[in-house]
Simulated assay, not measured.
Amino acid sequence: MKNISILGVTGSIGTQALDVIRDAENEVRLVGVTAHRNFEKLVDIIEEFKPKYIGVTDSDCFGKVKEYCEKANMNCELYSGEEALEKIATLEEVDTVLTSVVGIAGLKPTIKAIRAKKNIALANKETLVVAGDIVMSEAKENGVEILPVDSEHGAIFQCLQGNESKDVNKIILTASGGPFRGRKRDELKTITPSQALKHPKWNMGRKISIDSSTLVNKGLEVIEAHFLFGVDYENIEVIVHPQSIVHSMVEYVDNSIIAQLGSTDMRLPIQYALCYPERNRAVAHSLSFKEASTLTFEEPDMDTFRCLKLAYEAGKMGGNMPAIYNGANEIAVELFLDEKISYLQIEEIIESSMKEFEFVEKPTLDQVLDIDRRVREYVLKKYVK
């Protein structure tokens, strides 16, 4: 049996991971969980899965959870605040940690888990984006596997099985194009948060839905792929595939292309990561080629959706620039969702931040966290009146 903990259990990835665990027929046991402030959902999870260790980062929610567990006489250990993430990430009983918290908050607990020699099922792409060199170096030093949970990186991971990295010609990341595919810049000036949250194919959290609409999400995936698979940016191609059936592809030196196809169901890559190297019985729906008879592919419009171009620039520069890109985007998305900036200002904020801050070629973990803080302060001071 594989023992796992989930950081961010009440989020989109976390709740879909629970479906995988339910279907795993006692092959996967949930030992620890963390949540932020979704009390009702967390209580339901506690009642069903009875995890021994529970972490809650929001103080008010922690108080409610503590009271509930005491009244219900639950046999569990509770942790609060930032300590909660790190405690649940380093539990002695755990084999694999699924990191599905949103944003840079996942970085420190992921590194702690790696140092505790836990395999990582990585759904938090920002961890590799902001500190890829540090994370991959720690994983190698500690003999830890980084198992991608993203649909695209999970697809690439499967396409690489049985092959050698030296034989890879390029990685092809597919993108749905988001809700505004085909639109021009003038049509994006009045986009509202509710419009940007309506993804045409995937059911995702708020932040990643906005990122998908701007193509920031694909930019982050480009940087993540560079670190996960050791492929140069010149050999990572993004192609728009509106049907979202081909989840990504690998082209080899003989020009053969291996693709991974499946239904638009995140439980598929989650299951593969949690059960690797075994394949369990299907939890995702079977793909019907009769219903999906047409597959189309097109170039991404990086003149309209400039955030993808900026991601390539940040990735190629390396150093602390991806952290600047990511930090600027995270705070910009928050401001957009709060209706304090316009949609196109997300791109403006990223570009402005990349020009504002000094380049550091080999940042330490503390420098990564510091530049993230400084970028957010800069954006709030400049754009929020």
Rank of each mutant, 00 (worst) to 15 (best):
G103D: 12
I210L: 06
G32F: 10
V97W: 11
C275S: 15
N326L: 06
F359C: 08
I6D: 08
L344A: 02
S288V: 04
I120S: 12
D44W: 00
H247P: 03
T190P: 00
V216C: 02
H36E: 10
V375P: 09
H241I: 03
K87P: 04
H241T: 03
P363F: 08
K218H: 03
Y276E: 03
E298L: 02
D58A: 10
Q243H: 02
T96E: 09
K87R: 15
K316T: 10
N217P: 10
P51H: 06
Y276H: 15
Y325D: 01
D150T: 05
Y79E: 03
L344S: 05
I104E: 12
E67I: 04
H241D: 07
V130E: 07
Y233N: 06
K381G: 02
K385C: 00
V375F: 09
R279K: 15
L98S: 10
Q271F: 02
I46E: 09
N38M: 02
L268V: 10
K309E: 14
P109V: 05
L365M: 12
V216F: 14
P363S: 07
G143A: 09
V102Q: 11
R267P: 01
S263F: 01
R29D: 12
L261D: 00
A225H: 03
I223L: 07
G14I: 10
L91N: 06
T127C: 14
L369C: 12
T294Q: 12
N320A: 08
Y252C: 00
T296V: 03
V97H: 10
A84S: 15
K218F: 02
S5E: 06
A84K: 05
L160F: 01
Y276K: 10
S352N: 14
G32E: 12
E377D: 15
E138F: 12
K170L: 01
Q195D: 13
I324Q: 08
L91K: 08
K166Q: 13
E278F: 13
D366I: 04
Q158C: 04
A113Y: 11
S137T: 14
G11P: 11
V135W: 09
E152P: 06
S213C: 07
K52G: 11
